[in-house]
């Protein structure tokens, strides 16, 4: 098991990697926001700007064989689990070459090749999927774990409670990650859920931790411990990450329900700015950080170009994927 102080001893290259991963999520979502405003992204998109430390902190503790179930605010989960940036943009821009052929869009980005079991349009629905995935890992004895991300808005969903129970009963290798950003769509989570998630975990005898979800190293260190416990047969684990949702429930949400105080204070919780300050303290040069920023910008520019160059999805091909078409023997 890695030390809780991993962050303090991490090499400069590893710190820059955390930085790069968070920046990738941040800039990709900023670009999506702009593309959405320009009408280049159809439908609706839910951004996780401000929550980058959670997905990066968790996924950096995972192995490639581990699986991940996500939710509607899932761009960060997908990108940090390794979904290719270009096919990601192609998908969200509704193109045939998208990772899901333009059938799913933002709410259904999935990539089975990297264990990304999909974002999900139904609040809480990813939780029992991850439990099932963990069951598969347990039965197949493949030393993998399943992780599920859900918001505090999912706490009142019945399947969470069922899933915690089942996972605990069966000692499944699953990590439940609650991204607690305080908002349950358009309502404060405190008005929707009377208990708290760690008490739930306790009720089901599931070990849990609570971390500052805006501090990537703290998230990472906690995740390493919990993932290892799950992998070692200690059953399900739960991690509550306190974070902040900068944008609306979806893009275009004017957020009239949030106070100006809250909104203006969000920048104080910026996980990326905080990490940049930490990097400076760790003597990482500005030039190194700029190099990362340049690289991310270039990657995103390329991905958007690819997205724009993508072709309209083929209706007939889409129809053939309703059922598995098996080759005639």
């Amino acid at each position: 098991m890695k030390s809780r102080k991993a962050g303090n001893t991490a090499a400069k290259s590893q710190l820059l990697e955390f930085y790069e991963r968070m920046l990738l999520v941040r800039e990709a979502e900023n670009k999506l926001s702009a593309l959405f405003a320009d009408g280049e992204v159809p439908g609706f998109i839910h951004l996780s700007v401000g929550q980058e430390a959670v997905c990066v902190g968790i996924t950096s503790a995972l192995e490639a064989r581990d699986t991940l179930a996500s939710n509607h605010r899932g761009h960060g989960h997908a990108l940090s689990k390794g979904v290719d940036l270009e096919t990601f943009f192609l998908e969200i821009m509704g193109k045939e070459e998208g990772i899901c052929g333009g059938r799913g869009g933002s709410m259904h980005v999935a990539d089975m090749s990297v264990g990304m079991l999909g974002a999900n349009g139904i609040v809480g629905a990813g939780i029992p999927l991850a439990v099932g995935s963990a069951l598969a890992h347990q039965v197949r004895q493949n030393d993998a774990v399943a992780v599920v991300f859900f918001g505090d808005g999912a706490l009142a969903e019945g399947v969470l409670h069922e899933s915690l129970n089942l996972a605990a009963l069966w000692k499944l290798p699953v990590l439940f990650v609650c991204e607690n950003n305080g908002w349950s769509e358009f309502s404060p989570a405190s008005k929707q859920f009377i208990a708290n998630v760690r008490d739930l975990a306790t009720a089901f005898s599931i070990p849990s931790k609570k971390v500052d979800g805006n501090a990537v190293l703290e998230v990472h260190d906690a995740a390493v411990g919990l993932v290892n416990a799950a992998r070692n047969g200690e059953g399900p684990q739960l991690l509550e990450c306190i974070t902040h949702r900068w944008r609306g429930h979806f893009e275009g949400d004017p957020q009239k329900y949030r106070s100006e105080d809250e909104m203006s204070g969000l920048a104080d919780h910026d996980p990326i700015a905080a990490f940049e300050a930490l990097l400076e303290k760790k003597k990482v040069s500005k030039a190194d950080m700029q190099e990362v920023r340049d690289r991310i910008e270039e990657q995103i520019t390329r991905a958007v170009e690819a997205g724009r160059a993508g072709s309209a999805p083929d209706f007939e091909r889409a129809k053939t994927d309703v059922y598995t078409v098996r080759e005639a023997v």
Binding site: V131, G132, S133
Partner: peptide
């Protein structure tokens, strides 16, 4: 609900 959804997740995982 969880029996069925867990079956889906398991089916997607081998």
């Amino acid at each position: 609900a969880t029996i069925v959804s867990a079956a889906v997740g398991a089916a997607m995982s081998g």
